[in-house]
Simulated assay, not measured.
Amino acid sequence: MKPTVGCLVLHGFAGTTQDVLPLALALQKEGFPVECPTLEGHGLGRKGLTSSTRLDWLRSADEGYKRLSMRADEIIVIGFSMGGLLAVHLVNRYPARLLITVNTPFAYWDIKQAAGNLRSDFPVHSRRYLNSLVKIPVRSMLQFRRLLAETKPLLSGVSLPYVLLQSRLDDTVQSRSAELLAGSVAASAEPQIHWFDHSGHMIFHDADRDEAISCILAAVRRHASFPEPAKCNEEE
């Protein structure tokens, strides 16, 4: 019997599952079991986020992995933004068939790109930046920075196949993060970077959404394929 491959999809810092919902739905449509947990403290406003720490976020990801492992024999871990950092922790702790990170930080807040976005569409982007300042408590940002610092030393332990997606117009994560991440993992991971020229950070709700989802589906299908077991020769 062919093993079942499931996908764990992790959203980002101060976000919700809505940020990755188009991807999760596409994976489900393909027939893959999907687990898409809401990280502790997220989706509850500023007060909820303040009450949670990076350890709570890691525990949420950990519990999501364990729930999925009850429905799948093999697991592919997919992390968007900070969810990619959590994914790195998981693949260092548990077996996984493939790691995929999407717009995941190594270096964050691209000021130059942010300024360019403001010049191109001030009404849209200015509201988003102001909302972020109101939405994200300083305490939570410090927790995020500690998580990032604690994740970087773990990258050298990533030896499973690794696929990275990165938006070139990302102003939350510096686009060079993809190259820095790819250069920090073990050579056996054979990291592959896919670039997207027309989207910002929220790629699953931006111009490259369909292309990014197709890229992930192709990678998942490729790594979900198991070789057929060898058949024994029948005795005559």
Score class of each variant (00 low, 15 high):
2 K>R: 15
47 K>T: 15
60 S>M: 12
167 S>Q: 06
63 E>W: 03
94 Y>P: 00
99 L>I: 05
63 E>F: 01
121 D>A: 11
116 G>F: 02
16 T>V: 08
182 A>N: 07
219 A>W: 04
194 H>F: 13
212 A>I: 07
106 F>R: 14
115 A>F: 13
93 R>N: 12
21 L>G: 02
154 L>A: 06
206 D>L: 04
226 F>P: 01
198 H>K: 13
215 C>F: 00
24 A>D: 05
222 R>L: 14
7 C>R: 09
161 P>C: 14
179 E>R: 09
141 M>C: 08
22 P>L: 09
129 Y>K: 09
156 S>V: 11
117 N>G: 04
131 N>L: 14
99 L>E: 01
4 T>V: 14
186 A>D: 15
202 M>C: 06
168 R>L: 15
9 V>D: 02
179 E>G: 00
151 T>M: 03
60 S>G: 14
41 G>V: 12
178 A>I: 15
60 S>P: 00
162 Y>L: 10
13 F>G: 07
185 V>T: 14
22 P>W: 03
171 D>Y: 15
135 K>S: 10
39 L>K: 01
39 L>E: 10
86 L>V: 02
146 R>W: 07
166 Q>C: 05
114 A>H: 05
109 W>M: 13
170 D>G: 02
181 L>N: 06
180 L>A: 13
91 V>M: 02
236 E>Y: 06
148 L>Q: 13
4 T>R: 02
101 T>Y: 12
202 M>W: 01
108 Y>A: 15
159 S>H: 12
223 H>A: 08
231 K>G: 08
175 S>P: 00
201 H>R: 06
180 L>M: 15
62 D>Y: 04
125 H>F: 11
142 L>E: 10
82 M>T: 12
24 A>Y: 10
48 G>Q: 12
166 Q>H: 07
88 V>F: 05
95 P>F: 14
34 V>L: 03
146 R>G: 00
112 K>F: 07
10 L>R: 01
226 F>K: 11
71 R>W: 04
156 S>L: 10
131 N>W: 14
81 S>W: 10
69 S>Q: 15
174 Q>V: 09
221 R>Y: 03
51 S>R: 06
63 E>P: 00
1 M>N: 10
54 R>W: 11
143 Q>F: 02
46 R>S: 13
182 A>S: 12
145 R>D: 11
130 L>P: 00
69 S>R: 14
183 G>Q: 07
10 L>K: 04
56 D>E: 02
107 A>N: 10
88 V>H: 08
233 N>Y: 06
72 A>L: 12
158 V>N: 05
102 V>Y: 07
17 T>Y: 03
35 E>Q: 12
60 S>N: 11
129 Y>T: 08
139 R>N: 04
86 L>E: 15
50 T>K: 15
140 S>N: 07
214 S>Y: 04
145 R>F: 13
105 P>D: 05
154 L>Q: 11
170 D>W: 06
22 P>G: 06
190 E>R: 12
193 I>Y: 04
211 E>M: 01
185 V>D: 11
68 L>I: 15
148 L>F: 05
131 N>S: 14
25 L>M: 09
107 A>E: 14
235 E>Q: 05
